[in-house]
Every structure is written in C-alpha cells, then in structure tokens.
C-alpha cells in the first residue's frame, strides 16, 4: 500500500469552511480508485507528478519548443501542443518557461512535514472547533501514511475529518477510521450498475464499509452528488436515502451536492479527454425534491452549492 513516511499530495487548502466544522485545512491527496465521469479534480486521479499547461499565459516565445525532447512540443493556435507520450523532459520545459505557463501538480511530503504545515494554523482550529480534513483523490489509498499523520495530529489535539469514497477492503478501512473523528462519505449511487457506469467501480465494498463505520460511534456526514443524466434516477436516489437512513444516528447530516464544472478546464490543461463533453444543467427542483424526501425520512439534509 503506502509508505508510512511519505505521502503524495497536491495542495493544502487553508481556511476551508465547507469540509467539516469550523475553520479547517483540507489536504488534497493524490490518487483515486474511482473514476467518476464528473470528476472535478482530474489532476488527482493518479498519484504521479503532472504538469498543467495554461495556454492563455503562453506568449509563443518558443523556449519550451526548443528544448522539448523528440519535438514533442509544438505551437498550437493558442499556447502549445504537448505530446505527453513523447516528451521525456517536461519538467525542464516547465522550468524554462518565462511565463509560468506550466504548473507542477503534486509533491512528496513526509508526515512530520505535513503535520508541521497543518499545525501552523492551530489557533484558527482551536477558536472555531475546526481541524483538518483529508480529501483528494482519496487519501485512504495512502492509508499507512494518513494513519501516521492522524496519530501525530491527535497527539496535539487536532480534530480530523476524512472525506472519502470508501472503496478499500474493510480491514484497511477500519484501521483508518479508528484514527479519525469524523467521516465525510460519498454515496454516488445505490444500484451497482449505475455506480459502475458513473465511477467505473462497483459499490458493494463502499456500501458495506459505511455500514461498519456507522457502528463505530463516529460523526458521519453523507455526501450525495446528483449529476443530471448520470445518477439522477429517482428510484435510485430514493434507495440511496433509505439506505442512508438505515445507517442510524451516526449520520449527522446529508449534504446534497449539485454538479459543477469548475474542473472542466483542467482536462485540457492536463492533455486528457474530459468524459463529459456536453453542458450539464442542474435541476434545482429535483434537488429540492431530494432534500424534501430525505427530510421526510427524518434525515438532516442540506443542499450545498
């Protein structure tokens, strides 16, 4: 699995206010074992270092074109065209660019260093009953590392939330959950086939894991995204809600998340194809209906924009 002392993250988002209670720092871990079609953080799908290319910053100075191996970078109408298979020195190309048109994504960090960075905001956590949230990607793929980080943070009294899709075996999952205080858990579909179409994986493990977690006396917030045309089948949505209800009183809230396309530009910048080409419009009356449905079952539900 993962090295206890080395983690791979893209960024630490400070002053996060929607990833759990209080003022928080959210750590975005690299790597995910789902492949959601609507993913807004495609740079985190795999754990390797990547470079985004921002064509609007490029002034066609030619610096990267000149040094790129195998003529792998050429001028496009706007910015540069990068043949990422052929290019073996993208890091050098990024370094030589005078315009900061390349941005490196991802770096390795030790648990000591990560804890040190997180602790810099400790006063903000303490006055607001906030803390840290592990997000991503999915941090559970770096289980040994986050357990190490969590133990170090707990030793200093920091509240820890885990934002996860939960797709690993229970044994490993259990060890992680034991080391966090709160779980933000994604349930993207109830029916296995819908889940598989949308995320490329089956959800058996995901559903059974959250059942186990709900018996561990941890605060749980369920996150339920609804993407029109993908997982908005009302029967399935209803079954999701019924399932969530069955998890009992550990579930403190259900966040109904609308789709947003904030990540759509990232695909082009990474040189990968966006699985969603069409424009998707949120159906707000449907979201309200889902909220009502959840509330009628006695769940504390909110729509998050």
């Amino acid at each position: 699995m993962s090295d206890e002392n080395k983690g791979y993250i893209s960024t630490i988002q400070l002053y996060s206010t929607k990833d759990g209670p209080g003022i928080r720092s959210t750590v975005f871990f690299m790597g995910c074992n789902l492949k959601c079609k609507w993913c807004s953080n495609p740079e985190l799908l795999t754990p390797d270092i990547k470079y985004m290319h921002f064509e609007h910053k490029c002034i066609h100075c030619g610096a990267c074109v000149e040094i790129a191996s195998n003529h792998s970078i050429t001028f496009a109408e706007k910015g540069c065209r990068i043949d990422r298979q052929m290019c073996s020195n993208l890091a050098e190309c990024a370094e030589i660019c005078p315009q900061n048109a390349y941005e490196k994504i991802g770096f390795e960090i030790s648990s000591e260093e990560l804890v040190h960075k997180i602790m810099r905001d400790k006063e903000f956590y303490s006055v607001s009953n906030g803390g840290v949230t592990f997000s991503g990607g999915d941090s559970i793929l770096q289980g040994d590392f986050i357990i190490d980080v969590a133990q170090r943070l707990h030793a200093q009294g920091i509240h820890i939330a885990l934002d996860t899709a939960g797709n690993i075996c229970w044994e490993k999952m259990k060890a992680i959950i034991e080391n966090v205080d709160m779980v933000l858990y994604d349930i993207k579909a109830y029916a296995g086939e819908i889940h598989k179409i949308c995320t490329a994986v089956d959800n058996t493990l995901i559903l059974s894991n959250i059942k186990h977690i709900s018996k561990m006396n941890k605060d749980i917030i369920i996150r339920m995204i609804i993407v029109p045309g993908f997982n908005d089948d009302m029967d399935d949505v209803y079954q999701r809600i019924v399932f969530i209800k069955s998890l009992g009183s550990s579930v403190k809230r259900v966040d109904i998340l609308e789709y947003h396309n904030f990540g759509s530009g990232k695909y082009a910048r990474l040189g990968i194809e966006n699985p969603i080409q069409q424009v998707i419009c949120n159906n707000y009356s449907l979201l309200e209906k889902v909220k009502k449905m959840a509330c009628e079952l006695g769940l504390n539900a909110a729509i998050l924009q």
């Binding site: 988002q13 002053y15 206010t17 929607k18 990833d19 959210t26 904030f262 924009q305």
Partner: peptide, 10 residues
C-alpha cells in the same frame, strides 16, 4: 481576494 468556491474558500 478570497472567495468561497464549491466546498472551500479560495
């Protein structure tokens, strides 16, 4: 300039 985005401030 700090703004609130989907789930966080940026």
């Amino acid at each position: 300039l700090i703004v609130r985005v989907a789930g966080y401030c940026a």
